[in-house]
């Protein structure tokens, strides 16, 4: 059950971490779901055509960046309404990914499968009783997600780029006066978010299912956005929140399978109910970046 918790939280944690950059810089990218779907497809294509899992991962991050680049263009350059732009990206990603998959592979009698990601046991650590099998018997994606948590924190809190990103999200005019390129910083933050989301999507397609299915992300992109808000834009809290969602999900599977006399619909809603409860308890303390969803323009005050 607990290894399942980890697996179920990775496709939420990865896009959530990326979205912390995006949101910290003042952009709300509601298109994470669409970006993840494009990443899922890209990862699958990368492996299908090169038979190299690493190329699949890189390609998914790359296509994730391109998809998010559309969002960056719309929200930073065109200064479009971010809610509408993000929704458009979600719809575009869903449609385009299944269209391209059909265009490339046609109507199939059997779904194209790619090779599986090997499970890498980390020596020594995976021998620890109980904890070892839960945390250290996964594939590369899971370890990547582990590493990205402190890395994201480090970049945001301890580097000039991180400081710039936060400044741009809090007070773009002051940042601009200080000589920070607001548009460039926002672009970079959205693109990084896209790369993470693309990897999150690829976890589902090549890291977990070794095939691509239409709509396979199943709303996890939106949960990632919620996770970012209730983690108050902090990577370690995002890890905790993603794990919480994973636990709730694994728990409802177990409860149902054990035959708890409870309607399955109520159990299926459990992860979402837990999400809302936690969101309610922390959101009073949540302080959104001051320039959240506000396009930056030098002329306006």
């Amino acid at each position: 059950m607990f290894a399942g918790t980890i697996r179920m939280s990775v496709p939420i944690l990865l896009p959530a971490l990326g979205d912390i950059y995006t949101q910290r810089s003042g952009i709300l990218n509601l298109g994470v779901e669409g970006v993840m779907l494009m990443g899922a497809l890209a990862g699958f294509l990368g492996v299908a055509f090169t038979d190299n899992l690493f190329i699949g991962m890189v390609f998914s991050a790359f296509i994730g960046m391109i998809s998010a680049g559309v969002m960056a263009f719309l929200s930073v350059t065109v200064k479009a309404n971010q809610v509408i732009a993000g929704t458009a990206i979600t719809i575009l990603g869903a449609g385009l990914s299944s269209f391209l998959f059909r265009a490339i592979f046609g109507v199939q009698k059997l779904p194209p499968l790619v090779r599986e990601f090997p499970v890498c046991k980390i020596p020594v650590l995976s021998d620890i009783p109980y904890i070892g099998t839960i945390f250290f018997e996964h594939n590369l994606f899971v370890y990547l997600a582990y590493i990205l948590v402190p890395l994201t924190w480090l970049i945001l809190e301890r580097t000039t780029f991180g400081l710039n990103a936060r400044a741009v999200g809090e007070h773009p005019h002051a940042a601009d006066a200080k000589g920070i390129n607001v548009s460039l910083t926002r672009y970079l933050c959205v693109l990084i978010g896209g790369a993470y989301a693309g990897l999150g999507g690829a976890f589902l397609s090549i890291g977990f299912m070794n095939t691509f299915l239409a709509q396979m992300v199943g709303g996890r992109g939106f949960i990632a956005i919620a996770v970012v808000v209730f983690s108050r834009w902090e990577p370690f809290r995002a890890l905790a929140a993603a794990l919480l969602f994973g636990v709730a999900n694994a728990l409802q599977v177990r409860l149902q399978a054990m035959g708890v006399p409870f309607p399955p619909q109520a159990l299926q809603a459990l992860p979402y109910i837990m999400t809302i409860v936690v969101l309610l308890s922390v959101s009073r303390r949540a302080s959104f970046p001051s320039a959240y969803t506000i396009p930056f323009s030098r002329e306006e005050r």
Partner: peptide, 19 residues
Amino acid sequence: EYYTGDWRDAAKAKEGALS
């Protein structure tokens, strides 16, 4: 017995089956 609650979230179904 396990119902995923939707018709197409294959990852959720896989996790349920693994469990």
